[in-house]
Amino acid sequence: MRLGSPGLLLLLFSSLRADTQEKEVRAMVGSDVELSCACPEGSRFDLNDVYVYWQTSESKTVVTYHIPQNSSLDNVDSHYRNRALMSPAGMQRGDFSLRLFNVTPQDEQKFHCLVLSQSLGFQEVLSVVVTLHVAANFSVPVVSTPHNPSQDELTFTCTSINGYPRPNVYWINKTDNSLLDQALQNDTVFLNTRGLYDVVSVLRIARTPSLNIGCCIENVLLRQNLTVGSQTGNNIGERDKITENPVSTREKTEVTWSVLAVLCLLVAVAVAIGWVCRDRWLRRSYAGVWAVRPEPELAGHV
């Protein structure tokens, strides 16, 4: 019995129903990845006895295969030709893993590995389905600042390109790190010629003094958030920076001397009290002006 024809190959995949191992793997666009399909260590196989098939689970696209005494791979789909390989030495050890080169977004699929033994009446030896998740980093967002600060409504545009999978876009009020209402934004997400996603988000918001906002591009698969800020008002052009009320050098000096004078007075009073009360006061705990009170930390700032 020969199993070299594509029709019989597809028939085997559709008719055999046995327990199948399920696995998942992630890969970056442009990288190489291994889809694991292996028997326990110590297994040995004769390459003249085993038939190995790799194909996509849903479309039944032929990825690669091994047929005894047949080196032709004419039935491999053009998308995977010269990109999907198995190791003959590995197969002899029971490792039928697939090495996939130069991963593309179109490779995000379920891949089925099936191994049959001719000597066992073409009984299934191994069946594995590997789900491949593909990802690509988005570019750092570029946020435009409104050119007309006198308008009552301000329009911001956030752009990021060449990422995968489809992103989530958020606008943030960086004053308190709260999310702005998504009804205020209009997102356009589309696939470019590389099969990657580009995104343009337009935010329209009422003008307020010193508005400080940020645009966040979230890649869920990579657990990655890229955030860039943009300010309006007197601080246009500053990004991701906490601004405080400015204090002049003279004012700082006057405040410093005032604090020192008060401290000196308190020290003198404490010494006088200690001299008069002597041991009775020394034996009692005192936590007045000398108590250390930590300054409250600013919360909600980035």
Rank of each mutant, 00 (worst) to 15 (best):
L265N: 07
V199N: 07
T249L: 03
P149S: 05
E34I: 11
R44D: 06
Q151E: 14
N186D: 12
I213T: 12
M86S: 08
E41C: 02
V128C: 03
R83K: 13
A84P: 06
T159W: 01
V259N: 10
L11T: 12
V247S: 05
T131C: 05
N212K: 06
Q118H: 14
N235R: 14
V169H: 10
A136L: 00
E238N: 06
C216L: 06
N162S: 09
T232M: 14
S43K: 07
G94P: 10
V276I: 12
S31F: 03
C39H: 10
P149I: 03
S201T: 07
E22F: 07
E295D: 11
C39E: 15
S150K: 12
S71C: 00
C158L: 10
I273P: 00
L265A: 15
V142A: 08
T20K: 10
L196D: 03
R284N: 06
E41W: 02
L12K: 05
A287D: 09
W171L: 02
W290D: 01
T104F: 04
R207H: 11
D32E: 11
A18H: 09
N173C: 01
V269D: 02
D74H: 09
W290E: 04
S285I: 02
F45V: 01
T61A: 09
Q182G: 01
N212Q: 09
H66I: 00
L73F: 09
L120W: 09
H112T: 13
G94Q: 09
S31V: 01
F13T: 11
L191W: 05
I273M: 13
F190A: 13
P141N: 08
L222I: 08
K60S: 15
I217F: 12
S72N: 13
K252M: 05
R284Q: 13
T104G: 01
D198R: 05
G163E: 03
S248E: 08
C216N: 14
V140N: 11
G288N: 14
A183E: 04
K60T: 06
G274N: 14
D107A: 08
L85K: 13
W171A: 02
I242Y: 09
P296Y: 03
D74S: 15
Q55Y: 12
D46N: 15
L98T: 05
Q69D: 15
N162P: 00
L85Q: 13
E297L: 14
T188C: 06
I205V: 15
E58R: 14
L98C: 04
D198I: 01
N219G: 03
G214P: 04
I67Q: 05
V50I: 15
V220S: 12
G233A: 01
V255M: 13
V228K: 12
E41Q: 12
P6S: 03
N102H: 11
D19E: 13
V199T: 11
